[in-house]
């Protein structure tokens, strides 16, 4: 697993209070990991801070699963 993927998983585990085993690439923040709309906004903000990127709202809307977050950040992280 890439370093970015490791960091993404760690943020999700911390912010959503879930077990590492639940954080699979297919896991949806809202449907599988118990996040509500505010949790999702907070996750995106944490990704922005950790990876020093700015994720526009229209792109943030497409980040709904662990895998989507990892691919987005692998592509855009500086």
């Amino acid at each position: 697993m890439s370093e970015i993927a490791e960091k993404v998983k760690a943020i999700i585990i911390d912010k959503l209070g879930v077990e590492a085993s639940e954080v699979t690439p297919e896991a949806s923040f809202t449907n599988d990991l118990g996040a509500d709309s505010l949790d999702t906004v907070e996750l995106i903000m944490e990704f922005e801070k950790e990876f020093n990127v700015s994720i526009p709202d229209d792109q943030a809307e497409n980040i709904g699963t662990v895998g989507q977050a990892i691919s987005y950040l692998e592509e855009h992280a500086k």
Partner: peptide, 11 residues
Amino acid sequence: GTPRFNPFFIP
């Protein structure tokens, strides 16, 4: 100066 307010801040 970039606003990065936490979504839980107001509630």
